[in-house]
Amino acid sequence: MDSPYKRELEVAIRVVEQAARLSLAVLPNQDKGAIEKVDASSEHESNLGPVTIGDFAIQALLTSSLHAAFPTDSFVGEEDASALRDNAVLRQRVWETLQQTVVPDPEKDTEKDIVLPASADDMCDMIDRCQNAPGAGRVWVFDPIDGTKTFLRREMFAINVALVVDGQQTVAVVACPLLSPEPPTESLSQVTIQNDSIDPSGRGSLLYAVRGHGAYVRPLSDAAGPGVARRLQDCGTTRLLRPVTCDFMQDSALDGVHRAVAARLGVAYPGSDLLGWVPRWAALATGWANTTVWVYKRRDRHAKVWDHAGAMLLFEEVGGRITDVDGKPIDLLAGRKLKGNFGFVAAPADVHGIVLAAVRDVLQEQGRGDLLGEPKEQ
């Protein structure tokens, strides 16, 4: 792909490839060093879910390498190193994981794209370099492992890297190490993908996009090399809606609303069922699905920027439109949490308005008009 961001794309791909190898090295381990994250500053969201040695090691690798390549850029990532600074045993495990699993390829990494932290303390500093909020200029946004709960089960997960420039998604690189790179071959009215839909070939998928230049997928690993990238097809004009959602292990969505929206639209529920948001955006981009809706239980519940920035660009580059429940574009400058938006509605551009109207009608019918803001004119 030839674009003004060729160098950024090349470096991000190389680093994400290494991050994916690291994740696959950790994946089989029964003990992944998982601990529970707690957000004491939030009355409602005290338990933020698990974090593993893979999450910590990948964020350190991403930050160290991309900081070396682009030293004036800023970084935003999900994890912080406080648990590692307090737990010497866990810190050492993460450090050893980096040392043992990240092996730069001298034939490919001629420009030193893969840069490890200099020490365990430097590793913690690199992780904490990501504790910023998105702002103006060039900002790299990371989710080192999206779908940590399913990662612990050895099921679908993803690594998400985005370059956001002045609040606009510009470069996206996503690794889905367990997702097949091949397009759906079954009838589009029947095809679904689930958390345990593991690529039988073991190749996995690398997806990438640059704004205005399309989205692509290729095998993440292949005995004969990475393989040829395939440009993803435009989701096109369609009235055949194929949903992807999270009906499994989710606790943040408003009970019953997603099933009622599916019934209003005349589509099966849940359709494709994936825990992680990044795998959901990948499923939308690759044609396993073309529609998703998410309505939180409370108006003060907000998404995290690292679950969406970059991965959303994959779907937008194949003709998808993404807004919140009020029809507003997603504001990536609102902070680490997307406080300027409530929920998500994503569909092919020509039918997005139909899906959005169904969501708002269902909320009114269920007596939850309190969750609706003023609609943005379509």
Rank of each mutant, 00 (worst) to 15 (best):
D105H: 07
D73F: 12
F75Q: 05
R218I: 02
T323H: 01
P134C: 09
H213Q: 10
F75S: 05
D324N: 11
D234Q: 14
R299L: 14
M156W: 00
R7Q: 13
S252L: 12
L284G: 07
V171S: 07
G343T: 10
E186N: 08
R138K: 14
I58S: 03
H213F: 15
P270Y: 11
F70P: 06
A12E: 08
D196T: 07
G236E: 05
H352Y: 07
D251V: 10
F56A: 11
V295M: 05
P243I: 14
F344L: 15
A69T: 06
S23C: 13
S252A: 14
G266F: 06
A229Y: 09
H67Y: 14
A69Q: 13
D55P: 00
E317N: 02
E43W: 04
V38N: 09
D370T: 03
R239M: 09
L152V: 02
A162T: 07
G236S: 13
T192K: 12
D273C: 13
L24N: 10
D143C: 12
T101L: 06
T238Q: 06
A172N: 03
P177S: 09
T185F: 00
M1A: 13
A215Q: 02
E111N: 12
V115E: 02
E10F: 07
L313Y: 03
E377A: 15
V261D: 06
A357V: 01
W306C: 13
G276L: 10
Y269S: 09
G343N: 10
N195P: 08
D234I: 00
C130E: 07
D122V: 11
V318K: 04
G77V: 08
S82Q: 14
P270S: 03
F142L: 04
R264Q: 15
L371M: 10
Q366T: 12
M249L: 14
V267K: 10
F342G: 01
L254K: 10
R203D: 03
E17C: 11
F70G: 03
A209K: 11
T286N: 01
M126P: 01
A309C: 10
V161L: 13
G340K: 04
L332K: 02
L356R: 11
P243Y: 07
A162K: 05
L48Q: 13
L9G: 04
D113V: 01
D125A: 15
I145Q: 05
T292A: 06
V89Q: 11
A175P: 06
L62G: 06
P50Y: 12
R280V: 04
K37R: 15
D331V: 07
D86I: 00
V15A: 05
V94T: 06
F157A: 01
D80T: 09
P106M: 11
D2E: 14
H44I: 12
G335M: 04
N47I: 10
D128H: 06
Q169A: 12
Q378E: 14
A346M: 13
T323G: 03
D113K: 04
D55G: 03
D2L: 10
A223R: 13
R85W: 02
E17Q: 13
R360N: 08
Q92L: 09
L152C: 01
A81E: 01
K112H: 15
